[in-house]
Write a protein that binds this DNA or RNA. Structure first.
Lengths: 184, 184
DNA sequence: TTCTCTAAAGTGGTCAGACCAATTAAACAG
DNA sequence: CTGTTTAATTGGTCTGACCACTTTAGAGAA
């Protein structure tokens, strides 16, 4: 027997966070490279990457292709409290939820470039309301945005309210998007 | 042969979510195995895993070692649980906060009609970043939207990061808005 | 048959090495 | 010193393998 694989996903995250603390890294500083981390922590690079991806998703770390991995501003954020509050108290009007989703998704249309691939992707999913909206949102690269949308949308799903757009509306949105092309 | 890298992290998440919807999976159902997903979506298993990890963080999916990957129960409890977890970790990229605010405010410009009164109001406040943006947002009638913006912005204020736009930018936004005029 | 137990198959978790893509730093020419 | 080119660094993805855990199917005993 060999008892290897002593590492686990959460332990790896913990290791990296410990390393950040012990190295006295400050917001903006660059972490060791993934290869270096792998060797230092005695885990594979793939595991390092999964841990870093999680830290990135949590907003602790930021990666730049070819540049390195950097420590984010470690600020406390209230926005999740907001969402939890509005969910718990659920004083929110259902119509506000719908409006919110429509606004966010419409925003995605104005902010994301309508490349041929993206257009094709949406076109292929125009028949399914939820799939269509998901692809719309995930076009944005802002993870905070995706998270907020996910939570609001989950709430919406809980209401069993059916489709947010009709297929005609979705097709019209798609046309408008393709037609828009270039801002400024 | 190693060939193309047509995939990206966000696209992969999108693909998997689409697959979940199209397969009409219900909470508790098992997703295809990672290997199967990799082949179906034409991406590597490593990429599938990174995407699944993200979905796991979003509370959409749950993995069991040796058992499989399952769609989460989407009841309220689970959902509060996720939020509380986010609250505990309370980490978010500052850049995402900034992006979020800019997106929301830009959205307000496209959604709110530039009536003479509103234009005058913004013009009167164009010298102060905070006031300008606030009047922008309050043009939207969606309470949830305003609430989320308020909280996110409060956090932003906490960072003492200074103005979000320069005065020139604000003036340009104003001009763009006034020029846009009429939707549909 | 029915039950138990074991071996095999299936699935997520990890690892290793390779190549691609973007950035950065160094070497170079002017 | 400045701008350009080249090499090294680093994150992103792919492939294939093996480990650890779970589930399932089949063999064997009652």
């Amino acid at each position: 027997m060999h008892g290897k694989h002593a590492s686990s996903f959460h332990e790896n995250i913990s290791k990296i966070r410990t390393l950040i603390v012990q190295a006295a890294l400050e917001p903006g500083d660059r972490l060791p490279s993934e290869r270096e981390l792998a060797e230092t922590l005695s885990i594979s690079r793939a595991s390092v990457r999964e841990a870093l991806r999680a830290l990135s998703f949590l907003g602790i770390v930021e990666t730049r292709h070819g540049g390195g991995t950097f420590l984010c501003e470690q600020d406390r954020h209230r926005y999740i409290e907001i969402l939890s509050e509005f969910i718990v108290t659920k004083q929110t009007k259902a119509s506000d939820i719908v409006d919110m989703l429509r606004l966010l998704e419409r925003l995605a249309l104005t902010e994301v470039e309508p490349t041929p691939e993206r257009v094709a992707l949406l076109e292929a999913n125009v028949q399914t309301d939820r799939a269509f909206r998901q692809h719309l949102i995930f076009g944005l690269k802002n993870e905070l945005f995706v998270r907020i949308w996910s939570e609001v949308n989950r709430f919406y799903d809980g209401t069993e309210a059916g489709d947010l757009y009709t297929e005609d509306e979705r097709r019209r949105l798609l046309e408008m998007w393709r037609g828009a092309g270039m801002p400024e």
